[in-house]
């Protein structure tokens, strides 16, 4: 059961890492690459805090083996902002609308929202609530998160037109 050398393509960067095949993507992102923005809230695939995008799809990185992500495109929360002082519209909207409290669910929530908006750029409120159904939050009661996603959807749509 030797370590396997894999190539992880995270946020446009390529990393070669030797990993034990039983390591999850969440563990390798956090412990090997030290990208700790991906949070582990349950390690059981229920809370969504570890959500990352794998080839554009939102997945629970705590139930994804790192070796299965070999040479696939991974987006984590660290890869969303175009520059350190310029946030992605979703991040900006989460900040502005008070959708961040303790912040532990925030990275996963934002990535789940990104996946949702990519598949459905103008979702209804109910569609947003369904789309975020895999991400638990204990602080906000979700309403401000829903508002933030609505605002970001508008912002992104306006950006595309302009």
């Amino acid at each position: 059961m030797a370590k396997q050398t894999i190539e992880l393509r995270v946020n446009g960067d390529r990393y070669e890492v030797a990993v034990d095949p039983w390591r999850t993507l969440a563990e390798v992102l956090r412990e090997e690459l030290r990208l700790t923005g991906t949070k582990i809230g349950c390690n059981q695939g229920d809370c969504g805090a570890c959500t990352v995008l794998l080839d554009g799809r939102s997945v629970s990185s705590c139930l994804t083996l790192a070796v299965e992500a070999h040479q696939r495109e991974i987006t984590t929360i660290e890869g969303l902002a175009p520059s350190p002082d310029h946030l992605h519209p979703l991040q900006q909207a989460f900040v502005q609308h008070g959708a961040v409290q303790c912040g532990f669910c925030t990275p996963g929530m934002i990535l789940a929202a990104k996946h949702l908006l990519e598949n459905n750029p103008q979702p209804t409120e109910q569609e947003i609530r369904r789309g975020l159904g895999g991400n638990l939050c204990r602080c906000t009661g979700y309403n401000k998160i829903v508002e933030a996603v609505q605002a970001a959807a508008q912002e992104l749509a306006a950006g595309k037109e302009g």
Binding site: G45, D46, G48, R57, S58, V59, S60, L63, G131, N135
Partner: peptide
């Protein structure tokens, strides 16, 4: 069923 993430996997 389950969650969007689980359905994606």
């Amino acid at each position: 069923m389950a969650t969007p993430q689980i359905r994606n996997m």
